[in-house]
Design a protein around this nucleic acid. Structure first.
Lengths: 283, 283
DNA sequence: TAAAAAATGTCAAAAAATTACATTTTTCTT
DNA sequence: AAGAAAAATGTAATTTTTTGACATTTTTTA
């Protein structure tokens, strides 16, 4: 677990002197890992044993061990903490916080993905007669994106924003059709109904949603993503990104399964777009 | 740079005893970071100063510093790099690679964002009479997502997929309107034209695109994102994610600028959705 | 094969971290 | 509000760890 996060969380439980140490470290963790216990004690204006006790309170074996943990938290690419945006953050601060917490969420999402289900779903998709992507609200744009990706594969793909169109589309499903439903909470009533309709018409229903949700229960396969959402913002943020990345994974699996010739096909699709673009200068 | 890779690379240049140390470390790096120089020396069957010299050969300040570097290389998620998906990757492998390279791209994107422009654009958006989001192809879903976010702010927001609707919408722009155009390459002809139309009608045009592109040149403000795209896949992947994250940043900046009361408003919007959802059980 | 250079080890000094204990501060009880 | 108990903090000594100086061994080269 990220020790910077841990320091922030436990801050309330620290004593006065320990708080001083915590602040010095949080203010400049990069310096902290390159300091000796004496230097850090001086910077925090406390004694050396206090620093040592601070380290042990964080369940490390001592100061050197603490530095090791800190170094890992600071390692390149290790996203910091799920840092919450604060009322008074400067543009610089909230920009970095959002990027960082998005990266952190992706890491969590990555660990929650069940690769076996991914594999199974890729199987299904490659064999599908028709693939539908549906989502509502924030998840609609994810479905929209999936359309854009899978459309390039020259497979019959369906995407509707309109809920009635979605229902009608599912009514016409048949064996061999795959319906992918996207919802972070998995509690949107209309989407759960759509899952039911699709299943009644023999389609295979894949849910990109959280486990144990009503939607998950109606699906043939569930690709569950456990993403911590910063509810203070009242907006879906990290969940969408995780869903999109999962779509990327599915699309990639799809192309790999189809093999080399298929990828040449993709290149042709991309080349077709060239006419609509300005040429890139070769400086 | 990853020190484990460095050890592997420099292996040839090491002396006999240093090689012994290298092998012990490579065989079990996790143990190495928790050992003292004495323990490691014994394990490698060399003297302590030899271990120390080994560390310095790798451009570290000494043994403790070396352990810090090693700890960082071992940190969760660090084998970062832009790992390319390979023909024969297993589902497990390509899933992890895609998540990792997406995170890596976000890190690159984060560093390329100009915070001053972000701040300026947030300014503009909060004062806009009408905000439009347009994108084509893969960027359409990003615009779609932006619609979903900004719609909650109770600001007039416009989004069209249809290129003619986009043009007409821009023809009707006036002073105080902001048009946000999204394009990874910035070379899509129709989008560049839309930028021109919008500007002719006194709208402020913000581009989320790559710097120095034809689109960038037509914009009043450019939020440039430099994202390395894995062109082998012939699909936009990381670029979208970076664009979406930037949208999140803008949306967050917007709510922060509007202050506390405004956020209560957002909560109300979210609560309105409750009726359309299944209640969450309280276990 | 001998001399030079490089590598390695021994041992002592220096630096860093930790422990034991004394002192101070805070908290709780009456 | 005073005093006792508990918690927190600091001082100083001790231990551990790392590093440096120098001697010895090994390797290289002429």
């Amino acid at each position: 677990m990220n020790i910077l996060e841990k320091i922030t969380q436990n801050k309330a439980a620290f004593s006065k002197s320990e708080k001083k140490v915590a602040e010095v470290i949080l203010a400049n963790p990069q310096t902290a890992i390159h300091s000796s216990i004496a230097t850090l004690a001086k910077m925090s204006d406390v004694s050396e044993p206090t620093v040592n006790r601070f380290c042990r309170r964080l369940d490390t074996k001592g100061f050197p061990d603490f530095k090791l943990h800190l170094a890992q938290s600071l390692a390149n690419g290790t996203p910091y903490v799920n840092r919450h945006v604060d009322e008074n953050d400067s543009p610089d601060e909230y920009t970095n916080k959002i990027f960082e917490s998005t990266m952190a969420s992706l890491e969590v999402a990555r660990q929650s993905v069940d690769v076996n289900v991914v594999n199974r779903v890729v199987d299904l998709l490659t064999q599908a007669q028709k693939i539908s992507f549906f989502g509502l609200g924030a998840s609609a744009s994810v479905a929209h994106d999936a359309l854009n990706k899978f459309f390039r594969f020259n497979v019959p793909v369906v995407y509707f924003e309109d809920i009635l169109m979605q229902r009608m589309s599912c009514m016409n499903c048949s064996d061999g059709d795959v319906v992918v439903l996207i919802s972070h909470t998995g509690r949107t009533k209309s989407l759960v109904e759509i899952a039911q309709i699709a299943r009644m018409n023999d389609a295979t229903v894949v849910g990109i949603t959280s486990a144990d949700s009503p939607l998950a229960q109606e699906c043939s396969y569930v690709l569950s993503l456990e993403v911590p959402e910063d509810t203070d913002m009242y907006m879906p943020m990290a969940s969408r990104i995780a869903q999109l990345t999962l779509i990327d994974v599915l699309a990639t699996g799809f192309t790999l399964r189809r093999g080399n010739k298929f990828r040449e096909n993709l290149k042709r699709v991309k080349d077709t777009l060239r006419g609509s673009r300005f040429e890139k200068r070769n400086d």
